[in-house]
Design a protein around this nucleic acid. Structure first.
Lengths: 346, 346
DNA sequence: CTGAAAGCGCTAACAG
DNA sequence: CTGTTAGCGCTTTCAG
């Protein structure tokens, strides 16, 4: 007999009341007497009643669920953001469905459809590296379903988003490198159609300009930031003469690959070549030397994304004016760039 | 006009057919003529029709969704398992809802209810560290909803699960340490009510016994494996005389903390004290020296969990005989234990 | 304060 | 091959 999900109807039968009364009682509606509510709650407990979200969602036209789409969750940054999203969503009584695009725009498209079919009330999205246009978001826009991007957005697109000031983060890194005496600073740049890498490159350029250093095209290695690009790029840098005296990689993992190549060549870090990454991945604390990087406030980003989503959900107006929240990144200075050793921040 | 989710009814109206025909056509039912199917599909496309999973789930009594509950997804191991689960589930046409318990049994209980209310068809669970009994799973069992545990299960419980042979993994680590010449091997042990840490401790004990080393109680540091327990434990070990000549931590992060303490004390790794962890977290590749660890085949674990779930879902028999799949861990020998440097496996 | 009735979008007998 | 009908469990008018 227990092998059956108790429904509102079951409770109604036991108490000889109507389903609507039970429904109201469970929702703590003020039209129901306290006495009735108490009895309903008791029976609900006895029968081990569990509300059927699906039915409620179908009826109400709202699922109370957010669809989250990230490139991947292995790795530190996105899992922290997702963590922030989950925490904030739970607090707001919203559920979360998480999908990974695996950096593949086709997966992204398919996941979007899955989430759409699951009737999510809103989308929180960080783009795949291979996404070059937003065509596959047209359906969502047409249906007026709230959509908030975070971290990765398409360069030049006018969308609501929580981003970090990547340009500023990169600027701070390069300024720090210059302050530590570097003059020939190499850079690993990522695909320029995504805001994050474009802006990090821009920050690099801006800092060079502001501090009167010449821009040297050959010091920039363009790559897609996938496995091993750090190895190839570093080898290329090491063939130059004179050598660069610093390397700033727009992604931590690439910086770590560079570190390994530099070590193989017995090049001292940071004395001969200083090294910095971006994202403040967990492993930056464990390398030797520890890697200077830029923290992107993932937890906060997730929370803010949910907050913006809540506002959109609340404002019943069909259309939303794209808003943008820009978080300030935090430079994390560590041994890999610190020549005049003294103040180690962290 | 586009601002409206097209339904089967809409398609039916356009074509002058009944909803059931449309439903069947979309499901590629053989009773519908190819001609009709083609027309239905065309109109579906034109109207940008998206099936409503909620409605289908409500009607069919199946949501095609799996509930996944893990302690956390930040950190490598569980995010890899979740990755494996997602991949396998997607392949099987199942959706996935992921929840984190944050190692908190109360969260675990609440998440279970959320997933239950979301009408998931099955549960994939890895227990929180603070879970000491399975009372909160009673509701699931009663409803005969398939439940598969993975990695962390309650010691002594009779449940279906995919686990890794933690005892064997630990045994291999300790044997390796002994082969490298260690004789006083210290161990960081975790909470013993969970299979994983109990078995790792057992593997440690078994290896000592098999290779004729005495068991010394003071060489075991019991802790809850949270932040900083590695620091405190290592300090304690360093006060012993004679010093241990190896440390085997049941968790990687603890091993890394130990590494940092050892470095502060200028103790050479592995010459003076060899060091090994467990889980093969990503950062084990980046420490210096690189950390010997045990890989737990997370991806495979996730896939197997889904496969077992599918079998349970398929077999319509109400009750399931608890099954267990035990995966073989892989010892990853790296510099932190390799004294007679030669064959570096990886 | 409580009840009756309709319907969210879909599927699955059953009936032609 | 297609249509009719009922109903999954819930919420929400509208009527008492």
């Amino acid at each position: 007999m227990a092998n059956h999900r108790a429904s509102i109807t079951d409770i109604a039968k036991v108490l000889g009341l109507s389903v609507s009364t039970i429904s109201r009682a469970l929702a703590d509606h003020r039209d129901v007497s306290e006495d009735t509510k108490a009895r309903v709650r008791q029976v609900a407990k006895d029968l081990n009643y569990r509300p059927n979200h699906l039915a409620a969602a179908l009826r109400k036209g709202r699922s109370n669920t957010l669809g989250v789409l990230v490139p991947y969750i292995t790795g530190n940054f996105f899992s922290v953001v997702v963590n922030g999203i989950e925490t904030a969503a739970t607090k707001a009584g919203l559920n979360v469905m998480i999908c990974q695009s695996n950096e593949n725009v086709l997966h992204e498209k398919r996941n979007l459809e899955t989430l759409l079919n699951a009737q999510v009330d809103g989308f929180l999205v960080s783009l795949a590296r291979t996404t070059h246009n937003l065509d596959h978001f047209a359906g969502i826009q047409e249906l007026n379903i709230p959509l908030v991007f975070f971290d990765r957005i398409l360069e030049g697109s006018d969308v609501s988003a929580i981003v970090v000031d990547d340009r500023l983060g990169a600027y701070q890194v390069v300024r720090h490198l210059i302050e530590q005496g570097s003059r020939r600073i190499a850079h690993f740049a990522g695909p320029q159609h995504l805001n994050v890498w474009k802006n990090r490159f821009q920050g690099y350029l801006d800092a060079l300009r502001d501090f009167g250093l010449p821009f040297d095209d050959s010091l920039v290695y363009h790559c897609d930031m996938t496995e091993q690009s750090g190895v190839a790029g570093t080898r290329k840098f090491l063939q130059m003469s004179p050598l660069p005296d610093a390397i700033f990689a727009a992604v931590d993992i690439v910086a770590v690959e560079a570190m390994q190549v530099l070590k193989e060549h017995r090049i001292r870090i940071p004395e001969e070549i200083a090294l910095a990454g971006f994202s403040n991945e967990a492993f930056t604390m464990f390398t030797e030397p520890r890697l200077t990087s830029v923290d992107q406030c993932g937890e906060q980003m997730g929370q803010q994304a949910v907050q913006m989503m809540q506002e959109m959900l609340a404002s019943h107006s069909g259309h939303f004016i794209p808003r943008r929240v820009v978080l300030s990144p935090k430079l994390k200075i560590r041994d890999s760039t610190l020549r005049h050793s003294s103040l180690l921040i962290d």
